[in-house]
Write a protein that binds this DNA or RNA. Sequence first.
DNA 1: AACCCCCATTAACCTATGTTATAGATGGTT
DNA 2: AACCATCTATAACATAGGTTAATGGGGGTT
Lengths: 264, 264
Amino acid sequence: MTRAQANIPSSPLGRKITSYMNLTDEEKSFLGELERNVTRHGSRSDLLQQGERYGCVRVMRKGWAIRHKALPDGRRQVVNFVLPGDIIGFYCNLFETADHGVTTLTPAEVANFQPERIIELFKLFPRLAAALAWSGAKEEAIIAERLLSVGRRTALERTAHLIVELLRRLSIVGLVEEGRFTLPVTQEILADALGLSIVHINRTLRRLRDIGLIDLAGQQITVHDVKQLASVGQFDELYLHLIQAPKQLEHALDAKSDRKRAGD
Amino acid sequence: MTRAQANIPSSPLGRKITSYMNLTDEEKSFLGELERNVTRHGSRSDLLQQGERYGCVRVMRKGWAIRHKALPDGRRQVVNFVLPGDIIGFYCNLFETADHGVTTLTPAEVANFQPERIIELFKLFPRLAAALAWSGAKEEAIIAERLLSVGRRTALERTAHLIVELLRRLSIVGLVEEGRFTLPVTQEILADALGLSIVHINRTLRRLRDIGLIDLAGQQITVHDVKQLASVGQFDELYLHLIQAPKQLEHALDAKSDRKRAGD
DNA sequence: AACCCCCATTAACCTATGTTATAGATGGTT
DNA sequence: AACCATCTATAACATAGGTTAATGGGGGTT
């Protein structure tokens, strides 16, 4: 059983996982198999509607989406951004029906597999299963951090925080280059993510530009000084480690795999 | 293997689980064993501090607690209320260190067990494990709903929504009587949970009282008309089903237990 | 090239909620 | 029974952010 760290998987999920653990060839091929059934979707199409039954577990291979909840009168809150490599609501699949909707922001490729595969995964490749479980737990942590933002940070702080978060998450899957990345998002969506009005998001982005912290050109955003932007957003180091730290997973693995690890 | 539905478990966790599935005697006794190592804590004591290492998995047996995140300057957001029968941050235990603190609001009894027991649980009692996994998933859903509240509901709506949520959750574990329950919470904590100032929470509670929807007497709160309060809070039926619906679990069980169920 | 739709931008104005300050309950402690 | 610390309650005032409305740009489509 050989570990191949050299060849980086082409799928973002694989790339994300290899960023914190080495995968055996067997693990890689199982993962590849999970991602085999790919569906393609246009921009602004609903992958899941509030109230709909859950079917497959979905993994975002390419493109962005949002998970969002709506009130009867149309007010809407974006709960989370789904980025390439993300599983869409990992633990939510335990529920029968969705309490939120999922909508693409760009043309997207989504991998679909049956929930039962996860059980299989736990039996055959516990390390991989732990990685997914861990990744799912991060979702909750990200949402809680957004709750802190919306509840207690000012508009400027929230916005800065979100930009840094996206930058961090995207860089794990290799979608950031020199502080620049694509932000396929209207200001309305930003507003719904941050609990602000569209006008105020506009004002706030302007301030960030005026201060010289970011540049916006179409859907390209450039962060000039991550450190300063992070400090404006009161970005927490603990949170940073949590959303990208490699070592964390060892902890999960210790807890999860009571049997001897394969490949060691 | 006999199902004993007659004798209701004395622990709130047991009571919560039996509210949506019948437990075998074996399952009950394993659950009882998990809850055997009980620690007692005074009011306002930290069960876990932001940045601290996770140790045991904790179950609230008696009393209330809050999970909260703080900004460097002291602003604080209450992420969730931990009620009797709740597991404290089920999936968070996959992380090495806590990104939030947990503090009791009342004298509390907490059961502690090693994370490894959960693996054991999955092997020996998959139905029970599914129930816990499902219960953990609810945590995320509750946090997402709070995010919607804080981001998009008005002060009055949020407050009404929270009261209904607590009423629902507490009634599952038998802590509500005729719409009346104990709310061991200062207005400061309510404010931190709802992203409001303490003064404004006060105003808002007053309005709810003036409208005649609730009564407050010390820590006793009485909800006169749940339906109307729920409608003020734009309480979503989907969400309601999610936090207490029995049938949901069948779905989880189908997915989780590929082996034949014990006891059937 | 005229039309249209969606989106960003900005100004002017408005209001829900925050802040500060004060007073009064409540309950535990000596 | 006086004291102290917390907590609730309200008033008066301040402001961050919401609302409305108008303008202009960009990219399709006819």
